[in-house]
Design a protein around this nucleic acid. Sequence first.
DNA 1: CACGTCACCTGCGTGC
DNA 2: TGCACGCAGGTGACGT
Length: 276
Amino acid sequence: MPELPEVETIARSLRPELIGRTILAAEVRWPRTVASPSVRGFKERVQGQVIQQVGRRAKFLHIQLSSSNLLIHLRMSGDLQIRSAQSRPEKHDRLILHLSAPSSQATAPASPIDLAFNDTRKFGRVWLTADIHEVLGNLGPEPLSRAFTPQRFHDALRAHRRQLKPLLLDQTFLAGLGNIYTDEALHLAKLHPLAPTHDVTARQAWRLHTAIRLILREGIRRNGASIDWVYRGGDFQNHFRVYGRLGQPCPVCGTAIRRLVVGQRGTHVCPKCQRV
DNA sequence: CACGTCACCTGCGTGC
DNA sequence: TGCACGCAGGTGACGT
């Protein structure tokens, strides 16, 4: 499920539930889920730490602990779920953190809970690190931050000779866009996913900059998109302009949406609104 | 540096 | 019903 708006939605919903709780134990049910350190080191070092803050950087969930950081990437099918303590693990639970009742000043219910990392396809990963830079260091700018300006965006686009969509998906270029929100933003900006980045004009860059931020904010406002069997309660999927709408009318001009493949990813465009 | 291909995984929808 | 196939919100390691 997870692009920036979905991860942001999850971070916001987990924050009041998790802050102030102590990690009593980690139950690793699929060892490769733990990217670093070793499973053994992870279990030892995570135990006893108190959750201080829950945030997001790009598509990473950032759980700040008393003396380290837990970074979680949900990849394609990951999800984080609050369970009642010691409930039976579900089929695709890859990691379960057993948490204490929160400290007295916290607002969440005063009973222990489990935090389950459920991930059908097993692509998701977690890291435990004192220095988040080790994991997040190569990420590009956060698209909703003040540092991401139209001018810098235009300069950065022109510094590459690539197709537009693959560059937007490159997390070292811009951090947080995925397949859905990229297609949506390109359509809103009336730009073709295969357009060469080197030729993007200042005006087009400004349009795309605005479109990216608008689409991401709308995604967050709608609590993300919920597709297929992974449901999180968001409803942005009901407002897609092009994504997954092959053959259906473009919301702007009515032309049938087409599907092409760009960089191995299914890509949706309006052939009339978006020209190369 | 840019781009293509494959790998990592499971499950769902489609068509025969 | 069974089975093959294509598809899926992500990323990283290769090779050319």
